[in-house]
Amino acid sequence: MSRLSIPWLEMAFLCLLAAGLAYAGNLLRPEPLPLWADYFQTKIAETRAKGLGAVSIAEAKRLYDAKSFLFIDAREPDEFAGGHLPGARNIPFETAYAGLDSVLDYIPKRQALVVYCSNAACPKSRDLGEQLKFLGYRDILIMSEGYDAWAAKGLPTEAK
């Protein structure tokens, strides 16, 4: 029976030790992670800190229906081919370092844009948005929840 007993005390001690090391290790980082924060809201705040607007899926759907915004998909071409918002243009973030100017020649600078990637954990939409802002686009919104949440809500998508 002793072989089947669960070593609770050892487990609790190791958990406490790991928690203490995690706390101390995080304090020593140049950019510590927040210990207690809503991950998604933190990503929204990062978006705003870059001077970009953030929109929820519901808000993005209204903009999509109004057809006044151009949707930009910052994911990889194979992800885009697998499914994207109807009418969205694929500008993979990597393009920003390989001639983004020429890719964007067909999009006037006054065009309002909504940029998205997979989800809030993916930084591509924020980084591409920042790059677009640098290139002179003024109205840039980031759909932080991304394509995954859009598709999960059953909103319109198309595959190439």
């Binding site: 190791l14 958990c15 030790l17 790991a18 928690a19 090391l21 995690a22 706390y23 290790g25 995080n26 992670l33 927040p34 210990l35 207690w36 924060a37 809503d38 991950y39 998604f40 809201q41 933190t42």
Partner: peptide, 17 residues
């Protein structure tokens, strides 16, 4: 979403320890 950061900090140290 509130548990993402604590888990990201704690689990790796638990694995290493």
């Amino acid at each position: 979403d509130w548990l993402i950061y604590p888990a990201a900090l704690f689990l790796p140290w638990l694995e290493a320890v």
